[in-house]
Amino acid sequence: MSTLLKSAKSIVPLMDRVLVQRIKAEAKTASGILLPEKNVAKLNQAQVLAVGPGFTDANGNKVLPQVKVGDQVLIPQFGGSAIKLKDDEEVVLFRDSEILAKINDA
């Protein structure tokens, strides 16, 4: 299921959902050779654009998302709900628990 929206800013995730945008792989080698688009692999690295407020578990405890807007994260190769934007961009909604790892700049 795809939906065409104007921009990612119009999407407000609910509960423990996290809106991310995949980071594009380099289309040029270090020596300057341009790679065809079909040869550029999708990276499992993404930037967090928006985060839901969390949810309340069965025991009444508030469970907050582990990531925040601006974080770099590793996401699964498959899964999530893809959303097409008007400018041919794509963003993906994941549950917080589906995100594999947070990338720290060191």
Score class of each variant (00 low, 15 high):
V92D: 01
R95Y: 12
Q72E: 05
Q66H: 15
I83K: 03
V63H: 06
A82D: 05
P65T: 07
K6C: 08
L74T: 05
F55A: 02
G79Y: 06
G60C: 07
G60W: 10
V67R: 11
L85K: 12
A106D: 15
D16G: 08
S2I: 12
V92K: 02
L19Y: 01
P36E: 14
K24N: 13
D96G: 04
P13S: 04
K9Y: 05
L34A: 06
L93W: 03
L93K: 04
L49V: 05
A46H: 02
S31H: 08
A50S: 15
K38Q: 14
N61S: 14
K38I: 11
G32I: 06
Q47N: 07
I103L: 15
Q77Y: 07
P76W: 10
G80N: 09
L49C: 08
S97M: 03
T3D: 08
K38V: 13
A101Y: 06
S81I: 07
V67K: 07
P13C: 03
V48Q: 04
V91L: 05
E98M: 10
Q72W: 03
L19D: 01
L4W: 05
A106P: 09
R22L: 12
D71S: 06
K24P: 04
A106R: 13
S81E: 08
V12D: 09
A58I: 14
G70F: 03
K6I: 06
L43K: 06
L93C: 11
F94G: 00
V48C: 10
K38A: 15
G80R: 02
L34W: 04
D88Q: 08
P76K: 09
A50F: 09
A101D: 14
Q77P: 02
E26I: 09
L85M: 14
I83G: 01
Q77S: 13
A58N: 10
A41N: 06
P13Y: 04
G52T: 07
V20I: 10
L19I: 02
N61T: 13
D87I: 06
S31L: 13
S97Q: 10
S81Y: 03
I75Y: 02
S10R: 09
Q45H: 03
V63S: 04
A41G: 01
S81V: 06
V73W: 03
K42C: 00
A41Q: 11
L14R: 14
I23P: 02
L74P: 01
M15A: 14
V12C: 09
V12Q: 14
V67A: 11
L35R: 14
A101F: 05
P13W: 03
K6D: 13
S2V: 15
P53A: 13
T29E: 10
A8V: 05
D57S: 08
S7T: 08
F78I: 10
A25H: 07
F78G: 01
R95S: 12
E26M: 11
K62R: 13
A106I: 14
L85A: 11
E37G: 03
L64T: 15
L100S: 07
L93E: 15
V48G: 03
S31F: 11
G79I: 07
Q47Y: 04
L4P: 01
N104S: 09
D96K: 01
P76G: 11
A8Q: 12
G79M: 08
A46I: 03
Q21Y: 00
Q21S: 06
I75E: 01
E26F: 12
G32Y: 07
